[in-house]
């Protein structure tokens, strides 16, 4: 057991695996949510039908269990890693300008992650919990009416602002995370390293812009 949890490199592997799984999940999640941008009538029925389809599917069930496990493991390892790092350098410099030689978001993955975590708690409470355990009215096709809930929540200005801010935090987390995960897993060939930087950049901005667009669109146009 020890070799899977004690070694610094192994812990980072788990961070990378779980982080990359979350990255993969975000793609599916975004593609599904983009249906909210369809014209009102279609978006309403199609989004609800899609949500219903997901909640019945065994494959999606498995993915969702891996998702919960990944979030928990990612956060647990983030805490363990952060604490170990604190112990490794417990004496501070009186004058510290080390920040000049690295990017701020690479040094603050824990802070960005904490923002994402708080967001996840709110997000799960508002949608996931209500859908699974709350009592939602049914739509014309007899599916739970998640769509109306989403539109109602996104009509709150403060909520949209908070959502967009969290997406900015996620964007910076991914900007470093995607590339860092590849390093952690051992991609050392200079050519692929360049590609990963570019792909990571496109991925991070694409995902976060996509997610941020939905509440803004719903807020102003629905």
């Amino acid at each position: 057991m020890g070799q899977w949890t004690q070694k610094t490199l192994t812990r980072k592997n788990w961070m990378a695996f779980t982080g990359l799984f979350l990255c993969f999940f975000l793609v599916i999640h975004l593609l599904g949510n983009l249906q909210l941008l369809l014209p009102d009538e279609r978006a309403h029925l199609q989004f609800n039908a899609y949500s219903h389809l997901l909640s019945g599917n065994i494959l999606i069930k498995i993915i969702s269990w891996v998702l919960y496990a990944s979030i928990i493991a990612h956060v647990v390892y983030a805490v363990i890693i952060t604490l170990t790092n604190k112990r490794a350098g417990d004496v501070k410099y009186h004058y510290d300008r080390r920040g000049e030689v690295s990017k701020w978001y690479t040094r603050n993955m824990g802070l960005l992650g904490t923002i994402i975590f708080i967001f996840l708690v709110i997000h799960f409470r508002d949608f996931w919990y209500v859908y699974k355990f709350g009592s939602l009215p049914l739509d014309a096709q007899g599916n739970k009416d998640l769509y109306t809930l989403v539109v109602a929540v996104y009509s709150e200005t403060w909520y949209v602002l908070l959502y967009v801010l969290c997406m900015v935090a996620l964007c910076y987390h991914l900007l470093h995370g995607f590339f860092s995960a590849a390093r952690t897993l051992g991609v050392y060939h200079p050519r692929y390293v360049q590609w990963i930087r570019v792909i990571g950049w496109i991925y991070s901005v694409g995902i976060c812009a996509g997610f941020a667009l939905i509440p803004i669109y719903v807020h102003f146009l629905k």
Partner: peptide
């Protein structure tokens, strides 16, 4: 790597500050 861990060095976060200095 085991010895590096045993000495109490931290994890690498790939900030790349080391290469710059």
């Amino acid at each position: 790597v085991d010895q590096m861990d045993a000495e109490g060095f931290g994890h690498c976060s790939n900030t790349e500050a080391c290469e710059a200095e």
